[in-house]
Nucleic acid binder design. Structure first.
Lengths: 200, 200
DNA sequence: AGAGATATGTAGTGTTCGCTACAGATGTGA
DNA sequence: TCACATCTGTAGCGAACACTACATATCTCT
């Protein structure tokens, strides 16, 4: 039996375009018409490949987090907890104001509140953010074990904190804050992590 | 000439209901049908009173910020910058997880990203958040002048920082974080402000 | 070459959206 | 009481939404 007509578009390149539309307009604000136009395909191709709109979002999120994880691995490779926080937040200040992408973070812009029928989208995004937070928590736990962080410090709380600041910065970026403003926030935020660092 | 038939519903009570719907579903996620049902009126009454959906949102935002400003005045009345930050962020941890309201903050949940035709909604929310940030900045500037904050501290950066943390906490709350988690974030966050406080 | 399988483009489907025309109801002023 | 102004409920407007039926095109396998 035959294998059928092959797909004429590059799925990953199309996903990159879809990712940008979701990033800029959010899940509910992005329309199928906008998505198909950006992806350079017609609706039937979209549905054959990704199932439905939510399936397309999940595929875009997968691609986004995959690219982001490469960077996160560099972040947690920093020698101290303070430098981890600094690399993470300063990097976010730059990335979220990179003119090559929509401002902010897809994991925030994607949809914080949604209407009936899409209630699980915000939780889908939260689950992806939780992965990053877990990575930070593990790294901070190691820092505590190594004596880099105070014995009284709470790695989970620190990770939650850094994650919260990152989200706040994303919202600021999407509503017009410039790179310098975000860097100032990151600079202040790092001081809380420094306060949990052991004296040297 | 006559004054016409008087309105049969309480506009402020109706606004409270609309506020809750926008808070829970966001601007675009909230439908006129949901809003009118929650408000206990029919569409023509809504449009006669508030103009259109965006006018209703602005009226709801006005009411939200009016209530919130009462609390903000208590926050900035704290004696030191550190205590201002602590009152603000700890208070937010409690308010954003108050079961009497939808989780999170209307100024975030209302709409971070919107579709074509509602692009100005995110900026409308950002403008209201900026008012709070300005209030914090003025308070921190006073703290610096009083010697409560270090001479090298940047009141504007500190205010932006506290505001960013508050936004991040709002997103966390709306996606399921409980009160204890938010308090941990607030606790860590305050330490950055403490690091900018003058020794005593 | 022919049969089966999958992709594509056109052109829609039914539903829901924000919003409103209209008629009747209820008030004020002369 | 009557003219006028405003509100209210019913009912439905055009537009946009996510999604798909269908005919056609392009592949693989025999």
């Amino acid at each position: 039996m035959g294998m059928g007509r092959p797909r004429e578009f590059d799925a990953e390149a199309a996903l990159d375009q879809a990712m940008e539309v979701f990033w800029r307009h959010g899940y509910e604000g992005a329309t199928i018409a906008q998505l198909t136009e950006a992806m350079g395909i017609n609706p039937p191709s979209l549905y054959a490949c990704f199932g439905n709109k939510e399936g397309l979002l999940k595929a875009a999120l997968d691609r986004y987090t995959k690219l982001r994880n490469v960077w996160m691995n560099e972040v947690v490779a920093a020698p101290t907890a303070r430098e981890v926080a600094e690399r993470m937040l300063m990097g976010i200040a730059d990335k979220q104001t990179d003119p090559a992408n929509p401002p902010g973070c897809l994991l925030v812009q994607g949809g914080i509140a949604c209407g009936s029928g899409s209630e699980n989208v915000p939780f889908e995004l939260a689950a992806r953010r939780a992965e990053n937070e877990a990575q930070l928590r593990d790294r901070f736990a190691r820092a505590k074990a190594e004596g880099d962080l105070k014995p009284t410090s709470d790695p989970a709380a620190l990770a939650r904190y850094v994650s919260a600041v990152a989200v706040g910065m994303g919202v600021m970026a999407s509503s017009g804050s410039d790179r310098e403003a975000l860097r100032q926030v990151a600079d202040v935020a790092v001081q809380a992590v420094e306060a949990q660092s052991a004296r040297d």
